[in-house]
Nucleic acid binder design. Structure first.
Length: 478
RNA sequence: GCUCCCUUCGUCUAAUGGUUAGGACGCCAGGUUUUCAACCUGGAAACAGGGGUUCAAUUCCCCUAGGGAGUGCCA
């Protein structure tokens, strides 16, 4: 029997797609791909008050940016409320659920009492066995699931192992609110069943829920999916990193200039490993991914490692592809308009030509944009502090001497440019660095840049000679 | 409070009942070098603590400490 694997990513649209959610999506995606199955997407919007369309857009946008595609139509859980109510009614009819008329105040008091006494669950089951005739007038009841009180509920989790909960510690949870809307607990079970989900891979903050959901599955006579609860991701300081604690959304990582492929690689190694493999291509990930190799302890987010990986992927990525990522990124930056104006119509081409030298040095796309900025500078350049010092410390004189030699270089290409500059340094008894640095300052306005001969070539004869002349000032005739 | 989960270098992790406990990022030193990166070489750096079990525990069991999650008519 070959069972098709169907996973799902089921975010609640109360905020952006945070990094933990992104990893959960990645794991679900990888697992589905690894087994030739499908990953479905379900928006868990049963909380009408907190769900927003903006959040849904942000989540879909984040997934697309991460290049994680899903199968079929996106399921909006709230649209299935009627079906959920139907199941609740069935439970009610079968005596597996009951109407609860407790007021919020009473519930609050129960919780306090339970906590004070220790051990007992939240809801005390007051209405579990009361006769319907005792129902107060004009009060709309909530429907609670009649949870088993004896025995244990066991979850055979593929990551956490066998986890057992005593049923006496799990209370009768609400499945239908007093306004008739289904709660998450009911909806997930019904939807996972109806969508034929075979594997539920999610954060381990859902581990206790898995016990409650298992009880529901049993009551309904349905098979439970395979569960895999992955540990959460913490911030660099060990603090929590979740929707409730101000974590960054994936769009923040995009804006910081990270590549989707790098983020995926970083994320997959957070909690999962394949021997000593660190740089893992998407194909390899799909081939190697398994639930067994997911660790059980929480991981901290480390920007330094992400940066390193990002730098790696930048270095091996074809220049044109990097440029297309840059084009896609710029609109998302705060100063998008300024940047676009500065780059201009012919700027992207210049960037691509300069890319071999630029990408070697950059860790992020944002850095790339900054280090390539010299390409778009207008003459005369205003050198930064370090560059100005290079020019002031004899740099201008050197450039004035060098200028004539460069003017006669033919063709204007790296080999002949390099030969000319090296020859000049030899002739005048200067170390190459003493010539290259002032040249760098004049051409880029900075003390660091790609290889100086590349810079000369990419800038073109006219622009390069102009920039040098600008700094040499009137000295060439002195 | 109660329930459940976790604990190997600073960080992510590998491995094993007997190893010099491995790799990666970061860090330090050196090399290369036109700057900065990249790259190469070397280095410092970990089995939370205490009890057991065993000829032998980082590895198996228990306890403690620390961390996390849940404990809603949120998801």
């Amino acid at each position: 029997m070959t069972e098709t694997v169907i996973t799902r990513f089921a975010p609640s649209p109360t905020g952006y797609l945070h990094i933990g959610g992104a990893r959960t999506a990645l794991f679900n995606w990888l697992f589905a791909k690894a087994h030739g199955g499908k990953m479905l997407l379900r928006i868990e919007d049963t909380d009408r008050a907190r769900s927003t369309d903006a959040a849904i857009d942000a989540i879909l946008d984040g997934l697309r940016w991460l290049e994680l595609d899903w199968d079929g139509e996106t399921v909006h859980q709230y649209a299935r409320a009627e079906r959920h109510r139907e199941v609740a009614d069935r439970l009610l009819a079968e005596g597996k659920a009951y109407r609860c008329y407790a007021t919020p105040e009473e519930l609050q008091a129960m919780r306090e009492k339970a906590r004070a006494e220790g051990g007992a669950p939240g809801y005390d089951g007051t209405w579990r066995d009361k006769d319907p005739s005792e129902a107060p007038e004009g009060v709309a009841p909530a429907i609670r699931f009649k949870a088993p009180r004896e025995g244990d509920t066991v979850i055979e989790d593929r990551v956490q192992g066998r986890v057992s909960f005593a049923n006496k510690d799990l209370d009768d949870f609400v499945i239908l609110r007093s306004d008739g809307t289904p709660t998450y607990m009911l909806s997930v079970v019904v939807d996972d069943h109806d969508m034929e989900i075979t594997h539920v891979i999610r954060g381990d903050d859902h581990l206790t829920n898995a016990a409650r959901q298992t009880q529901l599955f049993k009551a309904l006579g349905w098979d439970t999916p395979v569960y895999a609860h992955v540990p959460l991701i913490h911030g660099p300081d060990g603090a929590k990193l979740s929707k409730r604690h101000g974590a960054l959304g994936v769009e923040a990582y995009r804006e910081m200039g990270y590549l989707p492929v790098a983020l995926r690689n970083y994320l997959v190694r957070l909690g999962w490993s394949h021997g000593d493999a660190e740089v893992i291509s998407t194909e390899e990930m799909i081939g190697w991914f398994n639930l067994e190799a997911i660790g059980r302890s929480a991981a901290r987010f480390d920007f330094a490692k992400l940066e390193n990986l990002n730098g790696h992927y930048l270095r091996v990525m074809p220049d044109a592809e990097i440029v297309s990522y840059l084009k896609a990124l710029v609109p998302h930056l705060a100063d998008a308009d300024d940047i676009l104006v500065r780059i201009g119509a012919d700027g992207w081409g210049k960037l691509e030509r300069a890319m071999p030298g630029l990408k070697e040095r950059a860790k992020t796309l944002v850095e790339l944009l900054d280090s390539g900025d010299y390409l778009f500078a207008r003459r005369p350049l205003s050198p930064d502090e370090k560059a100005a010092k290079l020019l002031d410390d004899g740099g201008r004189e050197t450039l004035a001497e060098l200028l004539p030699a460069l003017q006669s270089v033919e063709p204007w290409a790296v080999p002949s440019l390099e030969a000319s500059v090296r020859d000049f340094a030899d002739r005048t008894g200067r170390k190459l660095g003493r010539v290259a640095q002032p040249l760098r300052a004049a051409l880029t306005g900075r003390s660091t840049s790609p290889g100086i001969f590349d810079v000369l070539e990419v800038l073109g004869r006219e622009e390069a000679l102009g920039r040098i002349a600008d700094q040499a000032g009137g000295l060439e005739n002195a």
